[in-house]
Simulated scan of single mutants.
Amino acid sequence: MIDFRYHIVSIVAIFFALGAGVVLGAGPLKGTGTQLVQDQALKDRKDLVQAREELIQAKALDKYRDDYVSKVTAGLTDGKLTGKNVAVVTMPDVDGDLANNTVETLEKAGAQVTTRVSLDAKLFQADQRQLIDQLTTELVTADVTFTKDSTTFERTGQILGRAIAANAEGKNVDGDATKILGGLTGSKLFGLKPTPKQRASLIVVIAGKTPNPAPDTSSYSDAVDLAEGLDRASSGVVVAGTPESAQNGGYLKSLRGDSDAAKAVSSVDVANMPSGRATIVFALVEQAEGKAGQYGGVDAKNGVAPSAAQAKDN
Rank of each mutant, 00 (worst) to 15 (best):
A166M: 03
S235N: 12
G250P: 09
A233S: 15
E154H: 12
K263P: 01
A166P: 01
F16D: 02
L18C: 15
E53K: 14
D39G: 05
Y68R: 03
P215R: 04
T102L: 10
T195G: 07
L76D: 01
D216R: 08
Q130N: 10
A142C: 01
A177S: 15
Q198S: 15
G110P: 08
I132E: 02
N172I: 09
T147P: 06
E54F: 10
A246W: 01
P274N: 08
L226R: 10
P306W: 06
R65G: 00
Q158R: 12
N302I: 04
A308R: 15
N314S: 14
Q198C: 05
I159P: 09
I2A: 14
T147A: 13
V103C: 08
S10W: 12
A283H: 10
S218N: 12
V268F: 11
I14M: 11
L181F: 11
R199K: 15
K179A: 12
P213G: 04
A278V: 00
N172A: 15
S221F: 09
A166I: 02
K59A: 09
K193G: 04
S221R: 09
G161E: 03
E104G: 14
K312C: 09
V37M: 04
K84T: 00
N212C: 05
Q198H: 10
Q125N: 08
A305T: 10
V69L: 13
D66V: 08
Y64G: 02
L202R: 14
G303P: 05
G296H: 04
G276S: 07
I14P: 04
T145G: 03
L61R: 14
P213Q: 07
Q134N: 12
P92N: 08
K46V: 11
L123W: 05
F153D: 00
Q125V: 01
I180L: 13
T102A: 11
G297I: 06
E53Y: 12
V103P: 11
A264T: 05
A87S: 08
G250K: 05
T145P: 04
G19I: 07
A240E: 01
I56V: 15
K171F: 05
T151L: 14
K84C: 03
A292Y: 07
Y295Q: 01
D216H: 10
G293H: 03
V69K: 02
K253C: 02
V304L: 14
V37D: 07
Q38E: 13
